[in-house]
Amino acid sequence: MERRGIEKIIKEAMSVGRKTLAEPEAKEILRLSTINVPESRIVKDVTGAIEAAQELGYPVVLKIISPDIPHKSDVGGVALNIRSAAEVEEHWSQMIYSIAENNPVAMIEGFIVEKMAEKGVEVIIGLIRDKQFGPVVMFGTGGVAVELMKDVSFRLAPVTRQEAFEMMGEVKGYPLLTGFRGTHIKDLGAVAETIVKLSVLFDKMEDIKEFEINPLIVYEQGAIAVDARAILE
């Protein structure tokens, strides 16, 4: 973990009075904590987006960067599986239109163009601070429906690798990771490592109030954090 780099990101955001970290910042923290994130570029406009997409290689994902939009996909702020320059243009204008309609006062800081992660099993890892018990880590399945399904487990952070495995074993969706209806077992070790690393990071960085990876996509080998958000004290 590159503690100084992480602290710098947090301090800079706090120094301008921000209460949240934008997705690229949250992911940079993950990268500095040696948690796998997709390769990405930050761009200002559609020309930049097309250039970045060509550099990264299709398919790509286009996402809005705005401090005013906590859940991007709810307002049309995420476009997946873009396969050509024409599609970049098309999705870019759709996104601008949709945001203007759903959230007209949202300040748009730019766009992320990111290499599209392959399909896998999606899990969520989140951390919060409790007034009495301090840092708490959550693991769950269910992607965007996580709040509905509540298929989650909790531990006080930081956790050991063994506790991380226990957390996974406690959710109903666990068989999705161990092989379900003909799929192969996923990289449980990579998930456990991510839980442990994030819980240790969170325990040390007291200025972060909440941190969440949603989703972490898990493969037969490895896992990748395709979206992350952080809330500051």
């Binding site: 989140g126 919060i128 409790d130 708490v136 959550m138 509540k150 969440e212």
Partner: peptide, 8 residues
């Protein structure tokens, strides 16, 4: 703030 905060 986050899904985690809403569920916990």
């Amino acid at each position: 703030g986050s899904h985690t905060g809403a569920i916990a």
